[in-house]
């Protein structure tokens, strides 16, 4: 059927990164860009779920939960090495256009809350407030001494512009974070970004900048950061790379709107520092230093997020950009 094939020609891809396997995600992002696909920010708007790396059990469970929310026609691509990306994504349009296959595999019926979700909460009496098998929000004191409804929301691991494999469980009242716990799901092996070399270091900063700019709602510059990151890694000569990076850094650093939206949170200072580290690394490409080890970012995150609203919290996470 014409419409299905036309729709299948340019899918909307939701990418999920796996900690340590950034190389696969980078290759997938580049291929999605080359093919001109749309990037989805949620399962409802996605037609392809692309898992970049081999997830451990808890990350795999989160990915399955996201996959269960993707409506047919849909395709599920699991990539384990950068070399397989091109071939795997090339098959997607055919999968999506295969209407009989999609009809046969389409899932219907309603979702039910897992019964096991309850005991974690402590007392049995919470079930009394349950509607359709799921509890209603309970009240708790907020930072201003009011009693308000609390929701428990996980952020990550399947989220656009989010560090690979990170999960932050937040308790929120309205959109104010009351408390947060951060952890990496199944961190594994050596990190792609730990390899020594100025190019790797610059690319790591650009990758983090892309997340920060994306969270700040500046998709165009986030995409430019990714392009620069890929150029830094694929050996583009410094003579062309450095001017491009300098132009990018200048434009981002000069944005008054971005400064207005990110200062006062410690985010803008970190943004400038990262831009600076990027151009410095690209100016000295023969410097073999690896990315400096980070202090315990995960440990301080909860105290930084408490009392912030979700928009500010996401900017702080992106600015700190914890690594496993």
């Amino acid at each position: 059927m014409g419409l299905t094939a036309y729709a299948a020609g340019r899918p909307s891809a939701l990418l999920v990164g796996v900690p340590g396997a950034a190389a696969v995600r980078l290759a997938a992002e580049a291929e999605v860009r080359r093919l001109g696909w749309a990037s989805a920010s949620s399962p409802a708007s996605a037609s392809v779920l692309v898992v970049c790396g081999d997830p451990g059990p808890s990350l795999a469970a989160a990915i399955d939960a996201a996959w269960n929310g993707v409506p047919s026609p849909r395709a599920d691509v699991r990539l384990s090495s950068p070399g397989t990306v091109r071939a795997a994504l090339a098959d997607v349009p055919a999968t999506l256009a295969d209407l009989p296959g999609q009809r046969a595999s389409a899932v219907t019926g309603s979702w039910r809350p897992p019964a096991a979700a309850e005991p974690e909460h402590g007392h049995g009496h919470h079930m009394t407030g349950a509607v359709h098998g799921l509890a209603m929000a309970e009240r708790a004191d907020d930072r201003d001494g009011l009693k308000l409804d609390v929701l428990h929301l996980p952020f990550g691991p399947v989220l656009p512009y989010w560090p690979d494999g990170l999960q932050i469980r937040m308790a929120v009242q309205g959109d104010v974070v009351q408390s947060a716990e951060a952890a990496f799901l199944d961190p594994s092996g050596p990190d792609f970004w730990d390899e020594p070399g100025a190019r790797r270091r610059a690319a790591a900063h650009l990758d983090a900048l892309a997340r920060l700019l994306g969270v700040a709602g500046w998709r165009a510059q986030a995409e430019r950061a990714r392009l620069l990151r890929d150029a830094a890694l694929d050996g583009t000569p410094a003579a062309t790379l450095l001017p491009r990076a300098t132009r990018f850094a200048r434009r981002v650093a000069r944005s008054r709107t971005l400064r207005w939206m990110t200062d006062g949170l410690g985010v803008h200072a970190r943004l400038l520092a990262r831009l600076d580290a990027t151009t410095t690394a690209l100016a000295h490409l023969d410097d073999p230093e690896p990315l400096p080890p980070e202090p315990d970012v995960l440990g301080v995150l909860p105290s930084l997020l408490a009392g912030r609203d979700l928009a500010a919290a996401r900017l702080i996470v992106a600015a700190l950009d914890p690594r496993p």
Partner: peptide, 18 residues
């Protein structure tokens, strides 16, 4: 594609507690 897919609200891979 026929049939309605019942889903949990999207919580970046998490399951809602309430």
């Amino acid at each position: 594609v026929r049939g309605t897919l019942g889903v949990a609200p999207f919580l970046s891979g998490g399951v809602p507690r309430e």
